[in-house]
C-alpha cells in the first residue's frame, strides 16, 4: 500500500507550477501511472499536486490555422473517440484506442500518457538501477525480452507510449508551463534519450508541466495509421508498434514518416527509411526494402533479437496496408 504523501489541489496552472516547484512534488492527473509508481516505490514524493480541477486543461479545441489543441487532461478515451481526431489524425485515434484497458483509457490523460515512467521491470521493480540513480542497468545482462533494440545507451528501456509515435508523425508540439512561463517543444524533441541524460525521460525541468499538445493541420492527402503488436490483446504495452504517415503524388511517395514504439528508450523515428521511401512507388517491394532498412542499425540484447524480424514484418505489412488503404 502506498506510503503517505501530502496533497494539494491546484486551482490554476500557476498554482500547479508553484505546487510542484516545492520539494519533490508530483503532478496527479489521471493517476494511473503515478499511483502505481508510488505503490511500487519507484520514486517517493512528499507532495502530490492534483491538476484535475483545472478545467482549461480538459479542452480539445481547433486552432485558428486548422490544427488542433488537445488539453493535457483530455482522456485517452476522449482522444480515441473524438470525431475530429478520427477523421484528421487517424493514427492518433488508433493509438489511443490501443492504450491499456477501457477503464484506464477513461481515466488516463494524454499528458500522463506522454509523461509516464518507463515500464522496464527492473526500473519498476525492487532494483536500484541506473535510471533510479543506481550504478547499473539490470537489463543489460538480465531478462531483456521487452527491452530496446535501438538507442540503448547505458539504459535499455523502451518508451511505453502509444500516442507519442502517432503524435510525432503529425509533427505535434507540447505546450509547457513552468516557473519561467510558457514554452513549446516539438514532441520529437520532447523525449530524452539515455545517451543524453539517463535519469530523465522528458525535457521537462523542475516545476514544469505539459498543458497541451498542439497538432498542426494535417497535410492534404496524408494517409496515416498506427499498429501495435503485443503479447496480450488488451492491457499490454507494445512489443512493437509503428506509426506511419505517407503522402503520394502520381503514385510516388512524397512525404513519409515512420515512428516506432516498443523499439527504443524514446519514440524512434526512422529518417533513413523515410527517405528511402520518398520517390518510390509504395508497393510490396519498396515496403520490403524499407522494412529491411528500418532494422539495419538494430542492436539486440540477449533475449530480444526477435524484435528485428518482428519490426521488419510489421513495417513491411503496414507500408503495404497503408498504400492500399
Amino acid at each position: 500500500m502506498t506510503p503517505g504523501f501530502s496533497y494539494r489541489r491546484a486551482a490554476s496552472i500557476k498554482d500547479a507550477v508553484t505546487g510542484i516547484s516545492e520539494g519533490n512534488g508530483r503532478i496527479l492527473a489521471g493517476g494511473t501511472d503515478l499511483l502505481g509508481c508510488l505503490r511500487d516505490s519507484v520514486f517517493t514524493t512528499n507532495m502530490v499536486v492534483s491538476i484535475t480541477g483545472i478545467k482549461e486543461l480538459k479542452r480539445i479545441d481547433e486552432t485558428p490555422g486548422g490544427g488542433l489543441s488537445i488539453g493535457a487532461l483530455a482522456t485517452i478515451t476522449e482522444i480515441s473517440e473524438s470525431p475530429v481526431i478520427r477523421e484528421r489524425y487517424p493514427a492518433l485515434a488508433q493509438a489511443a484506442a490501443e492504450v491499456a484497458s477501457p477503464q484506464l483509457r477513461n481515466q488516463g490523460t494524454i499528458g500522463g500518457n506522454l509523461c509516464q515512467k518507463p515500464r522496464c521491470w527492473y526500473y519498476r521493480g525492487e532494483f536500484h538501477c541506473l535510471r533510479k540513480g543506481g550504478d547499473r542497468c539490470y537489463a543489460v545482462a538480465g531478462e531483456n525480452h521487452y527491452h530496446c533494440i535501438f538507442g540503448g545507451n547505458g539504459c535499455y528501456i523502451v518508451h511505453p507510449s502509444d500516442t507519442a509515435p502517432a503524435l510525432i508523425v503529425y509533427g505535434a508540439e507540447a505546450t509547457i508551463a513552468g516557473p519561467a512561463g510558457m514554452r513549446k517543444v516539438s514532441l520529437e524533441n520532447f523525449f530524452v534519450p539515455p545517451a543524453k541524460e539517463v535519469t530523465k525521460e522528458t525535457v521537462l525541468e523542475a516545476g514544469e508541466i505539459v498543458t497541451a499538445i498542439v497538432l498542426p493541420p494535417p497535410l492534404a492527402g496524408l494517409k496515416s495509421s498506427y499498429r501495435k503488436i503485443r503479447s496480450r490483446q488488451s492491457w499490454d504495452f507494445a512489443l512493437a508498434g509503428v506509426a506511419l504517415a505517407l503522402r503520394t503524388s502520381n503514385g510516388r511517395v512524397t512525404d513519409a514518416r515512420i515512428v516506432l514504439s516498443g523499439a527504443a528508450p524514446v519514440p524512434w523515428r526512422l529518417v533513413d527509411a523515410e527517405n528511402a521511401l520518398i520517390g518510390k512507388v509504395p508497393d510490396p517491394d519498396s515496403a520490403k526494402y524499407t522494412a529491411a532498412l528500418s532494422v539495419k542499425d538494430a542492436q539486440p540484447l540477449k533475449h530480444n533479437a526477435y524484435k528485428i524480424p518482428l519490426f521488419k514484418g510489421l513495417i513491411e505489412e503496414e507500408v503495404v496496408n497503408i498504400s492500399q488503404a
Binding site: 493517476g31 499511483l35 502530490v48
Partner: peptide
C-alpha cells in the same frame, strides 16, 4: 464511466 477505484484517490 467505468474506472478503477483502486487507482482513484
Amino acid at each position: 464511466m467505468p474506472r478503477y477505484a483502486c487507482m482513484t484517490l
